[in-house]
Design a protein around this nucleic acid. Structure first.
Lengths: 110, 110
DNA sequence: CAAGCTTATAGACAAGTATCTATAAAGAAG
DNA sequence: CTTCTTTATAGATACTTGTCTATAAGCTTG
């Protein structure tokens, strides 16, 4: 009977009360929500398999098959929670995975 | 420059086309959506820190502070994606973490 | 600066969902 | 069988969100 180490333990309301645990749970949920969407998973996968694990926004629209504003919207959301980093290079914008943040998600379930 | 091993790679549309990758991405998204909610994270954490990593539904409502039907609803959703297992014991219903499913999430981000 | 590209924002709309109250269903026990 | 407790379902509501079209904003280059 292996024990699950999950970091989520800190989400449980402590003997003290609820608010703190709740706030932490909301922060984690916000992070997970940023990943819990098929289009975003495809975007992340495309970035991850790209050279240097970064991708130009211009290369995401066509293979995924949604409109350019939709891709832009998802990238913004993921960028807001720090999952991806944005870098402008002339006309184009390149996105890359933020490994620190990614590691935090990984730790949650480790 | 460490490489991210992420299993999500398979979500990326292959050279062939999109549908298969899309379907896989949707499956993963469904699983992640079942966790991407603060109340559910609190439920999971409470179960995980309980003895034998199982908890009676009756012990979840009060510490989390939402109504009994709400807890029941969340448990049903998480049970539908196989994240928790349900077992009736007389009047009470006990829920436990499904470690296999949990491991699958863990692998996604490993 | 004007034209042409890429990216972001605004607004609208449909679909999903977290929560509640009210009520039903399931079991145990007198 | 009736009563009591626990859990699940139904229905309603308010909020969120994924997507689109239309348009603006940023850059580059003649």
């Amino acid at each position: 009977m292996t024990k699950i180490a999950l970091q989520l333990l800190e989400c449980a309301p402590s003997s003290e009360s609820g608010p703190l645990a709740r706030e932490k749970a909301e922060n984690i949920a916000d992070l997970l929500k940023a990943v819990a969407d098929p289009t975003r998973l495809q975007i992340l996968a495309l970035i991850a398999r790209s050279e240097n694990q970064e991708a130009c926004a211009c290369n995401l629209t066509e293979p995924i098959g949604v409109s350019q504003p939709t891709i832009s919207h998802h990238l913004k959301k993921m960028s807001e929670v720090g999952l991806v980093s944005r870098e402008r290079r002339g006309t184009w914008v390149w996105y890359s995975l933020n490994k620190e943040r990614w590691g935090q998600i990984s730790d949650l379930f480790a």
